[in-house]
Design a protein around this nucleic acid. Sequence first.
DNA 1: GTTAATGCAAATTCTTTGCACTGCT
DNA 2: AGCAGTGCAAAGAATTTGCATTAAC
Lengths: 139, 139
Amino acid sequence: MTNWEECLTEAGCRITASRRAVAQVLLDISAPISPQELFELGTLIHPKLGLVTVYRTLALLESLGLVRRIHRDDGCHAYLSSSPGHRHALVCRRCGQAVEFRGGDDLETLARRVEATTGFQVDDHLLQLAGLCPGCQDR
Amino acid sequence: MTNWEECLTEAGCRITASRRAVAQVLLDISAPISPQELFELGTLIHPKLGLVTVYRTLALLESLGLVRRIHRDDGCHAYLSSSPGHRHALVCRRCGQAVEFRGGDDLETLARRVEATTGFQVDDHLLQLAGLCPGCQDR
DNA sequence: GTTAATGCAAATTCTTTGCACTGCT
DNA sequence: AGCAGTGCAAAGAATTTGCATTAAC
């Protein structure tokens, strides 16, 4: 979501201080973050920020594909800034740092195999990997 | 979770009417189901069933690996009866029917590739497929 | 100047907890 | 009989909605 301002403008939405705060937090911390946490960090940037606006902004960004909703171990609702296109998240179990990667052929192969086995027609998938990032592997 | 009674007994838990109702609903409907829905269907079998018990029973079954918590499009918290071992869910977009499948080598290949690209050490994954089941493909 | 966006408070929904009672084993 | 399990009611979180005010364009 590098050029989120452009995306919002194209969608006919306004660039406001609240939205800037939310976007900045999402970009600064490249880890999945809950609405509550985002609110707390966002308040440091824009003290008037309200939790309600965080929810609304996340919904907006998600509908534009700028943010992805993902699973976190301690619950369900965390958001991660994302690039457009179909990517997947890889989250570090220890520090929460996250990166994105593209699916590739392996996933296609797997989908075709499952189609053959089950008779289903597979047309969407949700994939999330977890592990240790380079910095966290030594400890 | 075909022999859930045995699993519960081994774990030192009792077989009760409430647990039977929850288990029966989970086995009958092989689709992801929310606690609320499960409560409504369960009440038909065992009218005294309470929503609280549904939550508690789901938590118990999940801790024994008899039930899997999965993502559903309309929210996050749905449960699916599952076999032991590491399997993944394939859910029909139209009727909700779900089946399980094993990961296989493709997923391993993908994980190794992502490790090489990112430097992460990948040790866990969450994969869910969606599509149309054989019965829903014609319409 | 218009109208989208905000933030507060209140409403709803979802989930957990405390506690006396019930019913497996 | 003894204690795990239950269900109610109430507490606590998480999320959404109504509405007057603010600020982007």
